[in-house]
Simulated scan of single mutants.
Amino acid sequence: MAVPQDKDELLAAIETEFGKLNRTLEEVPQGLVHERTMDGHAKGTQMSPFDLVAYLTGWNELVLKWLERDSAGAAIDFPETGFKWNELGRLAGKFYGDYADLPYPRLVERLHTAKARIVAAIGRTEDAELYGRPWYGKWTMGRMIQFNTSSPYANARGRLRAWLKAR
């Protein structure tokens, strides 16, 4: 899918990639959701489908935090308070731990909720705000949202499909 250039394309990318991901998540046998046999987000680590959903949920909720802080005129600690961009493996581990106690169906529901809230926030935002100016460094708000929603959805789906095929 091409890189979104406006609000409508961003919303379409999110919906399309999330729909594909969701269909693939539905194929994961419940008895295997905690099986850590998939390459993890940090070099040399393994993760489970549960961890992958926790990672996506963590990033989606982080995007919501960014948007809420921006809306309030508050500073945003990109990517997250206490983390630098070169520590994303450590941040992934944090996300795995943040949701470890949730039942898998509740975690998937939480991902759906976060994605719906992002879509609603985009719906309330004008194209000029999403794509008309840099928001973080050279990146627009729309691009930062896309980097952390539709792109990871597509990546996660590919990982899951390969993992399922290997079963």
Rank of each mutant, 00 (worst) to 15 (best):
R106Q: 14
W85R: 14
L88D: 00
R117T: 08
Y104W: 14
Y99D: 05
A121N: 08
A114W: 09
Y96V: 04
Y96E: 09
H112M: 05
K115Q: 14
R117F: 10
A120H: 12
L102C: 07
L107S: 04
G97I: 04
R110G: 01
R117N: 13
Y99C: 05
I122N: 08
A116D: 15
A116S: 15
P103T: 11
K84E: 12
L111W: 13
A100F: 07
A120C: 09
T125I: 09
G89K: 09
L111S: 09
A100V: 14
A92C: 02
P105G: 03
E80P: 00
G97K: 10
K94Y: 10
R110N: 06
E126H: 11
L88Q: 12
F83D: 01
E109R: 06
T113H: 11
P103Y: 09
A121I: 03
L91I: 09
T81L: 11
R90N: 11
L107P: 02
G89L: 07
Y99Q: 02
N86D: 15
F83E: 04
T113C: 00
E87G: 02
F83G: 01
L102E: 15
R110Y: 03
E80I: 00
G82P: 09
R117V: 03
R106D: 15
D127E: 14
A116H: 12
L91S: 05
D127V: 04
L107M: 04
T125H: 06
N86S: 11
P103L: 13
P79N: 04
L91Y: 09
R117Y: 07
N86G: 03
L88R: 10
L102Y: 14
R106M: 11
A92L: 02
E80S: 05
V119T: 15
L111K: 05
T81A: 14
L91E: 03
P79S: 05
A114V: 08
E87M: 10
A100D: 12
A92K: 01
P103G: 06
G93P: 03
H112A: 11
G82N: 10
P105S: 03
G89T: 09
K94W: 00
T125C: 09
A116N: 15
I118W: 11
L111F: 13
A114E: 07
A114Q: 10
E126R: 12
D98T: 13
L91N: 07
Y99F: 15
T81E: 15
D127R: 11
W85Y: 11
T81R: 12
E80Y: 12
K84N: 10
G89W: 06
T125Y: 03
A114S: 15
A100W: 05
E126Y: 01
N86T: 08
G82T: 07
G89V: 08
Y104F: 15
L102R: 13
D127M: 07
R110C: 02
R110W: 02
Y96W: 02
F83Y: 14
I118M: 12
A114D: 08
F83S: 05
L88F: 08
L107T: 03
P79H: 06
I122E: 12
Y96K: 06
P103M: 10
F95A: 02
T113P: 00
D101H: 12
L91P: 05
A121V: 10
R110I: 00
R110V: 02
N86M: 03
L102T: 07
E80D: 10
A100L: 12
Y96L: 07
D127H: 05
V108R: 11
P103Q: 14
R124W: 01
